[in-house]
C-alpha cells in the first residue's frame, strides 16, 4: 500500500532509510523543523538549516523517488530563548515561496512555559499573515494534556486561525478529543518505546473514527522507526480493517490536509514511477 509519512525528520536519517521507505510504499513525506539535539548558537544556523530543508533534502529524497515537503519554524525547546526566536522568525518569510514549503511548524510547547507560549503566538501570527498552514508539536509525557489544552486555548483566542488548516500532532488517548472537537486535524506518532504504539493508534481510530486524523513515525536522531507507518498498516490489517479505511488514514487524509497549501504539488505514484499510465 502506498503511504505518506506526514512527520519525519529525514535530515537525521540515512539515504538507506529513504530506500527502505520507498520499498515499503512511501511516496511522500513532510519534514517539520525541529530541535537538533543541542541548542544552536545563532540565527545563522537556522538559516543554514532552512536551506538544507528546502534545497538538499528534497533532492536527496528524490533520489529514492520520494516527494519531500517541509515546514519551517524555531522549535518549542529553543523558543525559550525569546530574542533568538524572534530573529529566526524574521528569517522565515524569505523561504515561504520555496517549492516544498507547506507552512509553519512544528511549533508548539515543550515545558509549557510563558516564553514558549509567547513565541508560539508569534509564529501563529506569522502563519495567518502569510496565509500558511500550521503543524503543531504537543509536549510528551506528563506535560502533554496541559500543553495541548494551552495550545488549543491560544489557537481559539486568535479569531483569524482556520482550524481545518492546522494539524495538532502527537495526540494520544487523552488529547485526541481536544484537537478534533474544535475542528483541528490531528496526528498520532508511533514510537518504538515509551509513547504511542501501532496497537494503541489503531484503538484510537476504532474509538474516534478516521476523519481528520493521520499517523506518522516522527523518525529523528533518537530511538525511532521510519517504517512505523507500515507497522500501523499491518496492525490494522491484522484486525480486519478494510484496505479503503487504512488507505484513508495513511494516504488520503494527509493528501487532503496538505492540498490546502499552495506549494503542495503532489504527483500520484503511478506517474512518479513512469509506467506511462495516468
Amino acid at each position: 500500500m502506498y503511504f505518506i509519512d506526514p512527520h519525519v525528520h529525514m535530515i537525521s536519517r540515512t539515504t538507506d532509510d529513504y530506500e527502505r521507505m520507498t520499498r515499503m510504499g512511501c511516496v511522500a513525506i513532510s519534514e517539520p523543523a525541529f530541535w537538533a539535539g543541542y541548542d544552536r548558537g545563532s540565527a545563522a544556523s537556522f538559516h543554514d538549516y532552512f536551506r538544507q530543508l528546502t534545497e538538499f533534502e528534497p533532492m536527496r529524497a528524490g533520489w529514492s523517488g520520494i516527494q519531500h515537503y517541509t515546514w519551517l519554524c524555531i522549535n518549542a525547546k529553543e523558543a525559550e530563548n525569546v530574542s533568538l526566536a524572534r530573529e529566526v522568525i524574521k528569517l522565515i518569510p524569505e523561504f515561504l515561496d520555496r517549492p516544498n514549503v507547506l507552512g509553519i511548524g512544528e511549533i508548539g510547547l515543550n515545558k509549557n512555559t510563558m516564553n514558549e507560549s509567547t513565541i508560539f503566538q508569534e509564529h501563529v501570527d506569522l502563519a495567518v499573515r502569510m496565509d500558511q498552514q500550521i503543524l503543531i508539536h504537543t509536549p510528551h509525557l506528563q506535560d502533554k494534556f496541559k500543553g495541548t489544552h494551552m495550545i488549543v486555548d491560544m489557537l481559539r483566542a486568535d479569531y483569524r486561525v482556520q482550524p481545518q488548516r492546522v494539524l495538532i500532532d502527537h495526540v494520544e488517548e487523552h488529547t485526541v478529543r481536544l484537537a478534533r472537537d474544535h475542528g483541528f486535524w490531528c496526528a498520532m506518532t508511533l514510537y518504538p518505546t515509551t509513547k504511542c504504539t501501532p496497537a494503541r493508534a489503531a484503538d484510537i481510530i476504532e474509538q474516534y473514527g478516521d476523519e481528520q486524523i493521520m499517523v506518522n513515525s516522527a523518525g529523528d536522531w533518537g530511538p525511532s522507526n521510519p517504517l512505523a507507518v507500515p507497522d500501523f498498516i499491518q496492525e490494522m490489517r491484522k484486525r480486519g480493517h478494510s484496505e479503503t479505511k487504512i488507505k484513508k488514514i495513511v494516504y488520503d487524509n494527509p493528501l487532503k490536509f496538505f492540498s490546502q497549501s499552495k506549494n503542495f504539488r503532489f504527483q500520484a505514484p503511478d506517474i512518479t514511477y513512469g509506467t506511462g499510465k495516468p
Binding site: N112, L141, Q142, D143, K144, F145, K146, H149, M150, E172, E173, H174
Partner: peptide
C-alpha cells in the same frame, strides 16, 4: 494518561 498528567489551569 490523566493520572500521569500535570493539571491544566
Amino acid at each position: 494518561q490523566m493520572l500521569f498528567s500535570d493539571t491544566y489551569v
